[in-house]
Design a protein around this nucleic acid. Structure first.
Length: 423
DNA sequence: TCTGGGGTCCTAGGACCC
DNA sequence: TCTGGGGTCCTAGGACCC
């Protein structure tokens, strides 16, 4: 069996760190970044965590606490974070022949075949170079399986001074020690429901899970639980996902900055969601055969509740925005009910398939060459001038329903589109 | 007043066929 | 007309991730 080694590189409080890069005065201050609509905290620095601000805490509940402690609060600025992420990933890719970009702020690097005794030093080098070139601090966990690399990374983050951001968990005695005290709820792939089920089996630590009976665990946690056990034992069964696989579904949805009642307003929002989703669809050179549209009221508010969704099947598949908007509007007409206070809506494209596999149908329902060319031109213009430079008229211009984003930092890295007023 | 958004994987169960 | 068993395909829903 080939001996594998993985490094998990994870940016520390990524969104907050991005904000700090462009405003050094934030360095020792507590910083948090809020979700869309300034709803809840999705990133916190250590200083903010120390104040008791939790992941996902609603902003209205912690607002006072933030004011009192001079917490720097930001609305999320995904253009900035996406751009910083690309920079970090580009640098990381120089350190390995094989890498999986796992999320906006995390990557698994294959270090298989690298000399074992130098792994820790290599991790330090990765950490230092990323910091030096981008300003973003990262933590590195090194181990023989992905699950153990996740554990190592978590411990590196938790004991920053002791390990200075890099923890090499390849030695048997270190694994033993680490798993003994590692809560099972902090394991990658073990969520709240699984924690409950494991507690009934008297399993509370990663060490106990590793020593449990595989078949029993598979019964209660499915095949995924069994894989975690194997990985904890050092048997690698989760491989690097090297190629960026095509999405199987594409979703665009968002809560409104305020309540919405009229179908005209929902239409505008749906048109925008279709535009976003269709763009992603064309980017991966796919067509969709099924569009789902949904609308819903605010479940947290004490008002009459309504949720509904509907779909349309398009036999020949399409990636043409205008056509998709027309179909989505038809669905919206069917599910919309007057008199409700709507808070959110969205679209899902499911049943995607590669464009090259599409067949001409007999009824002329397929996308025409002219339509496809038109979309290509639109995509190119938007790529150059910034997202939304050109969009369908149905998307509206005033976007009154748009989300709240009151504390957004400037788009430091992508100023052009901002200056042109199209970012 | 104010509680995110976008994904994947797995399983159970129904429909259908032989 | 009734009976049984096994296979495949599809879908909805649960659980999890960042």
């Amino acid at each position: 069996m080939k001996e594998e080694v993985f490094a998990l590189v994870d940016c520390n409080s990524f969104y907050c760190s991005c904000e700090r890069v462009f405003d050094p005065s934030l360095e020792k201050r507590p910083v948090i970044v809020l979700s869309n609509n300034d709803g809840c905290a999705v990133a916190r620095t250590d200083e903010a965590k120390a104040l008791g601000i939790g992941m996902g805490d609603p902003y209205f509940k912690i607002k006072e606490l933030c004011k009192k402690n001079k917490v720097a609060v930001f609305s999320s600025n995904y253009t900035l974070y996406g751009d910083m992420s690309r920079r970090v990933m580009t640098i990381l890719s120089e350190f390995t022949p094989e890498m999986e970009v796992y999320s906006i702020d995390e990557a698994f690097l294959s270090l298989s075949g690298f000399s074992a005794k130098d792994l820790t030093r290599y991790g330090q080098e990765i950490k230092n170079i990323v910091r030096q070139m981008t300003g973003v601090p990262v933590s590195v966990g090194i181990a023989k399986t992905k699950v153990l690399a996740k554990v190592a990374n978590k411990l590196a983050k938790k004991n920053k001074t002791e390990y200075s951001g890099v923890f090499n968990l390849c030695e048997e005695k270190d694994i033993e020690n680490s798993l003994k005290n590692f809560p099972v709820r902090d394991l990658w792939g073990v969520g709240r429901q699984s924690v409950k089920k494991l507690a009934l089996q008297n399993i509370f630590t990663a060490g106990q899970l590793r020593d449990a009976n595989e078949k029993v665990i598979q019964k209660i946690l499915t095949i995924q639980g069994r894989r975690i056990i194997k990985e904890l034992r050092g048997e690698s069964c989760l491989n690097l996902q090297l190629i960026d696989a095509d999405k199987k579904q594409i979703v665009s949805s968002r809560s409104f900055g305020r309540s919405v009642y009229k179908i005209e307003e929902l239409r505008e929002s749906i048109a925008n969601h279709i535009t976003t989703a269709a763009e992603k669809l064309r980017q991966q050179e796919s067509l969709t055969r099924s569009i789902i549209v949904f609308v819903q009221t605010n479940p947290f508010k004490n008002v009459p509740q309504y949720y509904n969704s509907g779909f349309v099947n398009l036999m020949s598949g399409t990636a043409v925005t205008s056509k998709m908007i027309r179909h989505a509007f038809n669905v919206l007409d069917q599910i919309y009910k007057e008199g409700f206070e709507y808070k959110k809506c969205g679209v899902m494209l499911v049943d995607l398939f590669p464009k090259v596999n599409s067949q001409m149908d007999m009824f002329g329902l397929s996308d025409s060459i002219t339509d496809m060319h038109r979309m290509e031109v639109v995509d190119r213009i938007n790529a150059f001038h910034g997202k939304g430079a050109i969009k369908p008229g149905a998307c509206g211009t005033n976007q009154f329903w748009q989300m709240l984003s009151q504390m957004k930092s400037p788009c430091y890295t992508t100023r052009w589109s901002e200056l042109l007023g199209v970012g």
